[in-house]
Computed example of a mutant assay.
Amino acid sequence: MTGTAGGATAAAAAAELFGWWAAALLLQVLFISTLSWPELAVAAAGALLAAAAARAVRRAATARTGGRARLLTALLLFPGALLTDTARLAAATARVLRGHRVTGRFHTVRLRPGSGTAWVCGLLSATPGLYVVDLDPAGPTVLAHTLPGRPTALERALTTGGRR
């Protein structure tokens, strides 16, 4: 029995590492202007280091990776949120350059039940408009810093109850 449980744990760890690696590799490849084999090899090695670090951070924070029910929806909404928040950041930067003050805020945000805390926080933090600062290990509540403006469709899909 122990061998089966250990095998399942090792398989889950390998699947998690592969997921983080694939996501990190995809992001790195998107930022490479001309894709060549040496650059791809360096990106793959860097993504492996990022995957190991992401798993270690997730385990240290006791965050869950499960909750894949909204994962496809979140991945489809991510590009729109990225563009929206990038435009919001550019507008905020332009306002600051014109001498105006732009202030972000800290909000308590409740994640939707059944969501995987690790991937939800990672995906939300990958946009310029919201960054998860802290999470409550006892519940699905996180402290997030946000740019001024309304929540994106991605944030609305992954959270409930709005910003407090």
Results as ranks from 00 to 15, higher is better:
135 L>R: 12
138 A>K: 03
101 R>G: 00
64 R>A: 15
118 A>F: 09
64 R>C: 08
69 A>E: 15
145 H>S: 06
130 L>W: 07
56 A>N: 01
156 R>V: 03
53 A>P: 00
27 L>H: 12
144 A>R: 04
97 L>H: 02
28 Q>T: 05
90 A>H: 02
127 T>A: 14
14 A>I: 04
37 W>N: 01
75 L>R: 12
89 L>I: 08
153 A>V: 00
17 L>A: 09
81 A>E: 13
130 L>I: 13
128 P>T: 11
36 S>Q: 02
135 L>S: 11
157 A>D: 02
163 R>D: 02
4 T>S: 14
96 V>C: 11
31 F>E: 14
34 T>K: 07
104 G>C: 00
136 D>P: 03
37 W>V: 14
161 G>I: 03
100 H>Q: 14
38 P>C: 02
85 D>A: 07
131 Y>V: 14
77 L>W: 07
150 R>S: 05
51 A>Y: 05
157 A>L: 00
104 G>V: 00
24 A>S: 14
11 A>C: 08
34 T>I: 03
114 G>W: 07
9 T>R: 15
150 R>Q: 10
127 T>Y: 10
83 L>K: 07
21 W>L: 08
23 A>K: 03
126 A>M: 12
72 L>R: 14
67 G>W: 00
78 F>R: 10
15 A>P: 03
94 A>F: 03
53 A>V: 05
138 A>V: 01
122 G>R: 13
163 R>Q: 02
55 R>F: 02
60 A>L: 12
40 L>G: 01
125 S>D: 09
53 A>W: 06
116 G>H: 13
